[in-house]
């Protein structure tokens, strides 16, 4: 009973919040609604028994990724209203939904439910984080290490890309820069 209430509440709220993200013309509204939608997605993970995944979603997505976006905001002019294409929204909705349906049909057509079987069943008498740890460090050890190297490369790349010319301000207008030079 409570599971049903929670599921329907989460699904309605996430769909609404992500619609705000997609349709809003203000970057700040889009970012805050995306962050709160991510929190509710973590609720889906808890509902489907993936406790560890939900915690990782909260820490990585809501904590790290959204904070990174919020820091990125400092470099862009966020108060400006974003211009959008003048194409009709109805056309975009029809195309979006039909492409999504097409992709689902494409990927789901060759799969029949009878041939799906559990290749990695969770350990009995183990809580979800324990079972995840056992599988992650045995069967998925190599992808785990590769993901670690990939994250390291991404970190170095991000620092190198964004760190160039950090002493110059992007948001100050020309006049402010001139005044600063005069003071010096």
């Amino acid at each position: 009973m409570f599971e049903q209430i929670a599921f329907y509440l989460f699904s309605i709220l996430t769909i609404g919040l992500f619609l705000v993200t997609v349709l809003s013309n203000n970057i700040l509204y889009a970012m805050t609604s995306l962050a709160s939608g991510m929190v509710l997605i973590a609720g889906f993970f808890f509902l489907s028994g993936a406790d560890f995944l939900g915690v990782v979603q909260l820490i990585v997505y809501v904590g790290a990724v959204m904070a990174l976006y919020a820091f990125g905001m400092m470099f862009f002019d966020v108060t400006k209203v974003v211009k959008e294409n003048n194409t009709s929204n109805v056309l975009v909705f029809v195309f979006g939904v039909s492409i999504a349906l097409l992709m689902v049909a494409m990927f789901a057509a060759p799969i029949s439910p009878e041939v799906i079987f559990a290749s990695v069943p969770p350990e009995p008498n183990a809580t979800n984080p324990e079972a995840v740890g056992m599988v992650l460090f045995t069967k998925y050890l190599v992808p785990f290490e590769v993901a670690a190297v990939m994250l390291l490369i991404a970190m170095i790349g991000g620092i190198i890309l964004a760190g160039k010319k950090m002493d110059k301000s992007l948001t100050k207008t020309e006049d402010e820069n001139i005044i600063q030079k005069d003071v010096k």
Partner: peptide
């Protein structure tokens, strides 16, 4: 599927790279 369709609508509709 609905969430994926919403994301796809955003990709088609948006002109700003951050969005």
């Amino acid at each position: 599927g609905l969430l994926f369709a919403i994301g796809l609508i955003g990709v088609i509709r948006r002109r700003n790279l951050l969005m």
